[in-house]
């Protein structure tokens, strides 16, 4: 187990490195950068003071250096204008558009993104578990069919639209304020009980909306797995020996078919984060999504890059955790891994 753990940690390092390279390439793909675009604009206006500042910033952040050097500075393995200060040192860079360090612009957003994703995963589990078990044990019943159909609808509806409709009805029936993750009076306030409750009141819409497609997928997988298990000999034996049905279900087949719940965190996370990005644009949630879209459009490269890096980091960590948890739970996996090697 320990060797597996170490092995898994070691694999994460090159993965993250490769991801950072890819992200850097992607945010560098559009011609020019935020500042050079800015400089062109300022030149046409003849604003010399601002021009000087932009030129200064360009030099300050090393945008006039070769790309490889820029990457190394961003990563923090090359001495930039501020010495070694990059992702590795926890410095996310500087947002040109907001004229602030990325860390300050981002502020609560990363935390809220994390909260939304986490809540969504919990939601997915809580909802899909009983439904999946019900569908499998009552195969082809009316309940099974209608739940499966609902799941398919959840899979097929673009969730941004679902978000719009839900928030509209939430506003009409519950009077929840439209958009945002809390009531307006709590914005920029320190965390308090009232703020916490307000966040909870708003959280359910994005969580449901983002969670639907993941939940649908999870239900289908759990149902299929459990159906496979239910037909096996040991279940028949148990039943023949007179085990009560519920006890039989919980004691054996359910445990075996639980694997997707753990292993799917890895698959679920990218999905949740993707969903969150677009849903939060629609709902104007103060999470990373809307700002990422904006930063991408305006080529605010460090802001966009750091966001992407953060989201990918979250995913990689999630996959790591799910792999480790799975290996801990299921000896077949860690032994299988060693057998291959």
């Amino acid at each position: 187990m320990f060797t597996y753990f170490i092995h898994r940690v070691l694999i994460m390092i090159p993965t993250l490195l490769a991801i950072s390279v890819l992200i850097f390439i992607i945010i560098q793909l559009p011609p020019g950068d935020y500042l050079s675009n800015q400089i062109l604009e300022l030149k046409s206006q003849g604003d010399t003071a601002a021009l000087a500042k932009a030129e200064f910033l360009r030099h300050q952040y090393g945008l006039d250096r070769p790309l490889i050097e820029q990457y190394a500075i961003w990563l923090g393995v090359w001495s930039g204008p501020n010495g070694f200060s990059g992702l590795l040192q926890g410095d996310l860079g500087y947002s040109f558009e907001f004229d602030l360090p990325v860390t300050e612009v981002v502020g609560d957003r990363l935390l809220l993104s994390f909260i939304v994703s986490f809540a969504t995963i919990i939601f997915t589990w809580v909802v899909s578990f009983p439904i999946g078990v019900y569908s499998a044990t009552h195969q082809y019943s009316i309940g099974d069919h209608s739940l499966t159909f609902l799941g398919f609808i959840g899979l097929a509806t673009p969730n941004f639209l679902l978000a719009l409709v839900l928030i509209y009805f939430a506003n009409i029936t519950f009077g929840t304020s439209i958009g945002g993750l809390m009531d307006p009076q709590y914005l920029d306030q320190p965390w308090s009980w009232g703020k916490f409750v307000s966040v909870l009141e708003h959280l359910w819409i994005p969580v449901i909306v983002i969670g639907t497609s993941g939940t649908a997928g999870m239900i289908r997988r759990l149902r299929a797995n459990l159906l496979d298990e239910l037909q096996k000999q040991y279940v028949v034996t148990g039943r023949a020996k007179g085990l009560p049905p519920l006890r039989l279900l919980i004691k054996y087949p359910l445990r075996v078919s639980l694997n997707p719940f753990i292993s799917d965190i890895g698959n679920l996370l990218p999905q949740v984060i993707s969903g969150a990005a677009i849903v939060s644009v629609v709902l104007s949630l103060p999470t990373t999504g809307p700002m990422l879209v904006h930063a991408l459009q305006s080529q605010d490269q460090y802001l966009a890059g750091s966001f992407l890096m953060f989201l990918s980091f979250l995913t990689v960590i999630g996959m790591f955790l799910s792999d480790v948890a799975l290996a801990g739970l299921d000896p077949r996996i860690r032994l299988g891994e060693q057998a291959v090697r």
Binding site: T15, P31, S312, T315
Partner: peptide, 24 residues
């Protein structure tokens, strides 16, 4: 396999967004 793992650990939509924002 490594390449696939890396691509899969990207959240899909933000990656799509980044790439399509990169279209001239």
């Amino acid at each position: 396999q490594r390449l696939i793992e890396i691509i899969r650990s990207f959240p899909e939509l933000p990656l799509w967004m980044a790439l399509s924002a990169a279209l001239p």
